[in-house]
Each structure stands twice: as structure tokens, then as C-alpha cells.
Amino acid sequence: MKTRSLIAASAALALAGCGLGGKTPDLLLNLTPEVTVPESGRTSNAENAITVVRPTVPQALDTTRVPVMEGQSVTYLKDAFWVDTPDNLFRRLLSETIGARTGRVVLDPLQFSFNPGHRLTGQLQNFGLDATRMEAVVTYDAALARGAENVTTRRFEARVPVAAADRNNVAPALNAAANRVATEVAGWIGG
């Protein structure tokens, strides 16, 4: 029994350090919204509420690392780690931006007891550095379901120039590009 417990503990420790190369990063990156929802509560009927679903991501984005794309190659930016995966960070940014810019009640998909109202889903295609053009790029293919029979899709993309391929330049540029896309999505959804 002791041996089995030691093996399980060793495996857990090995997996814990796996994503970060075994050492703890000195800094974790996060997305911050340009606008936030007021602290006062909101009331809405189900037709005006919106549920923002976590976007799907390609395998290269399913990590806390910042991808660097050059042609068909993908590497990762040295010493740059997100606090969470881009799909979760972007969903929270979208929710905050849509709520602030449209005045709508924005629901989390985990709020199962509520009618989800409109549902925003999509795929986060790009969320990293385009090394060929030296630009932070965010590409989001959105799908908005307005009821059971009406779905509209649209692609949103923002590119922000980057002076150097390091976390001090890439992270703020990605934050700006993500906010630009979120603002465009909020405008598309409307109030």
C-alpha cells in the first residue's frame, strides 16, 4: 500500500511540473478588459440575456504558453505563461466586454437553472505572435445562436504591432488585440 501511495505521489509531482518545465514562472500573464460591468445588478428577460461559451481552440493554443507562429511552424515564447489557457481567459474577457458595452445580462454556461438566452460560441483560431509580420494576432470565429433555429457566424481578427518577441512586448499587444476583438463582438451582438 505504501509503495502504491509513493508512486501516485511521484506521478502527481511529475505531472504538476510538466507544463512549466519543472520550474515555477516568475510572472504569469493575464488579460484585462478595457471596460467593466458596473457593480450594480442587472435584470433581463431570457431573450435579452446572453451566455458566452468557452471557445474551442486548436491544439497549439491548448496550453498556458504563448505561441509564436512562423509559416507552418509553432514554437512558444520564452518565459511567457498565462494564468489560464487562452480559451478561458478570452471567454471571461468577452463576457465582461459584452456586459459592459451592451448592457445585457451575461450568463456563465455553468448556470444551468437559467434559460441561456442567446448563446455565443466559437473557435479561437489564433492567439499569439505572428513572427513573420511581428504582430500579436487574435482570430475568433464566432457563432451566435438566437433561439433554436437562427445561427449567425462571423470572423473577427485584430493585429497589433510588436516591437520585440518577448513577453514585455507580446503580452500587452495580445491584450490590446483581444480587447479589440471583444469590442467588435459586442458591437455585432448589439444591445
Rank of each mutant, 00 (worst) to 15 (best):
P25N: 02
P25L: 01
L27C: 00
L29G: 02
L29E: 02
L29N: 01
N30H: 07
N30T: 12
L31A: 03
L31E: 02
T32R: 10
T32S: 09
T32N: 06
T32F: 06
P33C: 02
E34Y: 04
V35G: 01
V35T: 11
V35K: 03
T36L: 03
V37Q: 06
V37T: 12
V37K: 11
V37N: 01
V37D: 03
V37A: 03
V37I: 14
P38E: 06
E39C: 00
E39L: 13
E39A: 12
E39I: 05
E39Y: 05
S40V: 11
S40E: 13
G41L: 12
R42G: 08
R42M: 11
T43H: 07
T43Q: 10
T43N: 04
T43W: 04
T43D: 08
S44N: 02
S44D: 10
S44M: 07
N45I: 03
A46L: 12
A46F: 11
E47P: 00
E47S: 13
N48I: 02
N48C: 07
N48W: 04
A49M: 13
A49K: 04
A49F: 04
I50F: 06
I50Y: 09
I50S: 07
T51S: 12
T51Q: 10
T51A: 05
V53C: 05
V53R: 06
R54T: 15
R54W: 00
R54Y: 03
P55T: 09
T56W: 06
V57N: 07
V57I: 12
P58T: 12
P58Q: 13
P58N: 14
P58M: 08
Q59D: 15
A60C: 07
A60T: 14
L61P: 01
L61D: 09
D62Y: 10
D62W: 10
T63P: 09
T63W: 13
T63V: 13
T63F: 10
R65K: 15
R65V: 03
R65G: 03
R65I: 06
R65M: 12
V66R: 00
V66Q: 08
P67Y: 10
V68N: 04
M69H: 11
M69D: 00
E70S: 12
G71T: 11
G71P: 04
G71M: 09
G71Y: 10
